[in-house]
Design a protein around this nucleic acid. Structure first.
Lengths: 130, 130
DNA sequence: CCGCATCCGAAGGGATACTG
DNA sequence: CAGTATCCCTTCGGATGCGG
């Protein structure tokens, strides 16, 4: 006895994982944290193998859930900037610790380790050099 | 200059999310933390709508990744117990943090809130009462 | 009690081409 | 630059039935 189960309600752990789960959400939030503000194209280059379809779709979901802020600048060419919200900023410590745990695990298992936690990011200038 | 990108390597954030992502992994780890040790059937009843296929499959993945310990007792009827490993125990504080964030969000958005963080668990006795 | 095997539908995600 | 639109394939996950 003691513990009671409630029909149809959602567990908070489950709820949270649904919000930030998915293939790219963690990285997007982390990169936005690292840089404060990123444009659409910057995000696309950062997450090397993402397609525009998935990037747009994922950003829309994050926006709907109040995890990213989207700001459009009506100029030519157009410019759209993404940043974290107060809500998602509270998730950063969690993601950071998770990242550290990942680093340790990758070292233990001899998975080719990246040089720094920021190495996923590729800058526009570097991209241009190609 | 500055940030360097390495071809083909995995970002630690991405790595970690792949390990504990998926529909049920977060809840399984959390429940195992709450109870220390759970049998197969107890886990199945705790995660109300999981099928045996998904439960077995998810537990195997967690075991392969060193996140759960599986112990078989050769008796009649058989008995199999699951528990956390040292590696996964290190994740608990962060899952707990994530859970608290989830609780707050659910309150803000008026999503029917569960009574306690343990309410996902249904005991064997309760199940038997049906 | 603790699974495994099979079938099947739903959803996630990639490639490519195109637009304001 | 910042997306849309379409097609298609793969993976995830549910339902059911059987087995040691």
């Amino acid at each position: 006895m003691a513990k009671k189960n409630i029909e149809g309600t959602i567990c908070a752990v489950d709820f949270a994982f649904r919000r930030i789960g998915g293939k790219y959400k963690g990285r997007i939030l982390w990169y936005l944290h690292q840089y404060g503000v990123l444009r659409y194209g910057e995000l696309r280059r950062s997450i090397k193998d993402i397609t525009t379809k998935m990037l747009t779709q994922t950003l829309r979901e994050l926006e709907e859930d109040g995890l990213v802020h989207r700001e459009v600048f009506q100029s030519m060419p157009p410019r759209v900037e993404y940043s974290l919200t107060d809500s998602s900023k509270q998730l950063i410590p969690f993601i950071d610790h998770l990242r550290q745990w990942g680093d340790k695990q990758m070292a233990k298992e001899n998975i080719p380790v990246i040089k720094s936690s920021l190495s996923c990011i590729i800058t526009e200038e570097e991209q241009a050099e190609k």
